[in-house]
Design a protein around this nucleic acid. Structure first.
Length: 336
DNA sequence: GTAATTTGACCCGG
DNA sequence: CCGGGTCAAATTAC
């Protein structure tokens, strides 16, 4: 890698990020008027776009200069009304379509009062299929998959491991999104509201507001499904303004029209911080363009979705490519 | 009775 | 060979 200018760009991005955070903080302070809110919105939007652009360039520079069909100029990365669309792994995805399972981790603290052991219910029904003692870790790691795996082919999985330093915290690594529909009776109505959210990215944003710690580890994905219609409610998670965005349009695009929202927010009410870690994943991908392990069925399904939903992999969002490791959206989360 | 969990064995990539 | 992830029979819970 050539890296002339890259560093500078990162600096710039860094600055922008900070600006973004500040604006975000501003936003979280109850603003007196809707007008103000709008303004903040557009600030966020602009900054988001700027970051986006810069990041795209990073992508170009570092993956392969060969003009990809999705180079920045041509692709209108999907944008939400916040303008917060950073793209995760597009460059990688572009150069080779593999490894499309979205992955992200959360840390959930169970309140000391409710000293119950298991991690809180996130609205899904999970089935434990294994547990392993992890080398060097004090607590074992538990493996869960969606209960409906076989019935509905839902490939969502999660790994839960208690944090060493603070046993009241569970690290939960989610893997894949839910394609199953949730048994309605399982989820509280309140939860269902939340369940309108479909993508990890969205969650990131949402959690941004709610102050949950989410670490996006590998948002590889051509982001499943309907990234094409990815948009965000103009701030305010006030009740149900969140759900109207995903109209039938996105639904229609689902492969097999019978699916309901494929992804339900794992976010629970408990949690606390938020941080986005840059993707440090590079190593695991070898960095080389030629790493083709035969992928699992997953790929096929997901790519089936993507193609079916016409979303060119161009428009994913949230792209944090290798950034300086301490760049974090660590914000205010607590004060909101 | 069914469904979920436990747990040791197995598989596979590094 | 080792360790992480998964399978599946046995066990437990409902």
């Amino acid at each position: 890698m050539e890296s002339t200018g890259v560093w500078e760009r990162k600096q710039v991005i860094n600055e922008l990020m900070q600006g973004y955070e500040h604006a975000k903080q501003l936003q979280s302070v109850r603003s007196p008027s809707a007008a103000t809110e709008l303004q903040i919105q557009s600030i966020l939007s602009s900054i988001g776009k700027a970051i986006n652009m810069l990041m795209s360039r990073d992508c170009e520079g570092e993956t392969q200069p060969t003009d990809s069909p999705h180079s920045i100029s041509g692709s209108p990365h999907s944008e939400n009304s916040n303008g917060t669309t950073f793209r995760e792994d597009e460059c990688r995805v572009l150069s080779k379509k593999r490894k499309m399972v979205p992955k992200w981790t959360e840390q959930i603290r169970v309140s000391a009062g409710s000293s119950l052991e298991g991690p809180p219910d996130d609205g899904h029904s999970w089935r434990k299929y294994g547990q392993k003692d992890i080398l060097g870790a004090k607590y074992p790691r538990a493996y869960y998959r969606c209960t409906h795996k076989h019935l509905q082919g839902c490939l969502a999985k999660k790994q839960v491991q208690r944090s060493e330093e603070d046993p009241s915290i569970f690290n939960i690594m989610y893997q894949g999104t839910h394609t199953c529909m949730q048994a309605p009776h399982l989820a509280s109505p309140k939860l269902q509201e939340k369940q309108q959210q479909q993508h990890p990215q969205q969650q990131l944003l949402i959690n941004f507001r709610t102050g949950l710690k989410v670490k996006t580890e590998d948002l590889d994905t051509t982001q499943d499904l309907n990234s094409s219609s990815f948009s965000f409610p103009p701030a305010k998670d006030s009740g149900n303004s969140t759900n109207c965005i995903f109209s039938s349009k996105s639904m229609d695009n689902h492969f097999m029209g019978s699916f309901s929202p494929p992804f339900i927010s794992p976010a629970t009410s408990e949690s606390n911080y938020f941080s986005v870690s840059p993707c440090h994943q590079m190593s695991s991908y070898g960095g080389g363009p030629n790493m083709q392990t035969p992928e699992s069925e997953l790929n096929e399904i997901i790519s089936a979705m993507t193609t079916a939903s016409n979303s060119s992999l161009g428009d994913l969002d949230f792209h944090f490519d290798e950034f300086d490791p301490n760049l974090q959206f660590d914000t205010n989360s607590f004060l909101s």
